[in-house]
Simulated assay, not measured.
Amino acid sequence: MPISSDHNVSTDSVLLDELRQGSSKAFDLIFRRYYDNLCRFCYSFIHDADMAQNLVQNVFIKLWERRFVMGNVSNLGGYLTVMVKNQIADYISDYKRQHVDSPFDINIVDHSTEDEIQGRDFEEQLTLSLAKLPPRCKQAFELSRFENMSNKEIAREMKISVKGVEALIGRSLKLLRVELSEFLPSSKSSSKNPILFFLRVVRKIFRD
């Protein structure tokens, strides 16, 4: 979730600390910083602008109600996004329950909303994770996974040895596995849950 580009406003961590102390000013700053983006995010799933605003407003009501018991929230944007996801899931579940026999289509994508949300989350986290890689690791990794270059071709491109390329890619994979651990399929879940549509990307990235 993008943070305001205004460097004069407080950081999220400061706002969270102030909110936990009951600051209405901190709440107002958080609302103005995240409201529009959260509304757009919500609308992308339910395609109803008024309802998207209502659901996001519910999130901020809950945020204010929980201000004294928020615990160790470290990522404000992520925390609010999860709250919106829960609102979306509840709304869709209620709608489907109330319109079982209705021909009206809520205009939600065919694959499950949960899968699409997780797919978008993965793409966003992958972008952030790649940006954290050391420059040479990032270059070697992207040439391998996204440009489909062989290690020999990458070695020529980067003017290093093939073993040097292997070391850079290996280091990249190690770092990315940590950053993207929540998205990686586990042996426990793979037999119970449908394969998410973005797992093909995960497999490509983490292939041996």
Score class of each variant (00 low, 15 high):
204 K>H: 13
107 N>K: 08
131 A>F: 15
56 V>L: 06
7 H>W: 02
162 V>K: 09
175 L>R: 04
82 V>G: 00
182 E>H: 10
152 K>F: 10
132 K>G: 07
9 V>F: 04
134 P>N: 05
65 E>D: 15
67 R>M: 01
40 R>W: 06
198 F>T: 00
20 R>A: 03
124 E>Q: 10
96 K>N: 15
105 D>F: 01
147 E>F: 12
99 H>S: 09
150 S>P: 04
23 S>Y: 13
115 D>N: 12
186 S>F: 03
91 Y>H: 15
194 P>L: 08
22 G>L: 02
165 V>A: 01
182 E>V: 12
5 S>H: 11
134 P>K: 07
11 T>A: 05
195 I>C: 07
145 R>L: 07
53 Q>H: 09
139 Q>D: 15
168 L>Q: 12
4 S>H: 04
90 D>E: 12
206 F>T: 00
201 V>A: 08
69 V>N: 08
181 S>L: 03
115 D>K: 05
32 R>C: 07
167 A>Y: 14
160 I>K: 00
55 L>F: 06
86 N>W: 12
37 N>P: 04
5 S>L: 14
79 Y>D: 09
137 C>L: 00
124 E>H: 09
108 I>N: 14
105 D>P: 00
165 V>G: 02
46 I>G: 07
88 I>C: 11
178 V>A: 07
155 A>Q: 04
45 F>P: 01
107 N>M: 05
191 S>N: 13
68 F>L: 11
95 Y>C: 09
15 L>Y: 04
165 V>Q: 00
189 S>W: 02
138 K>I: 04
126 L>P: 01
185 P>F: 11
91 Y>P: 07
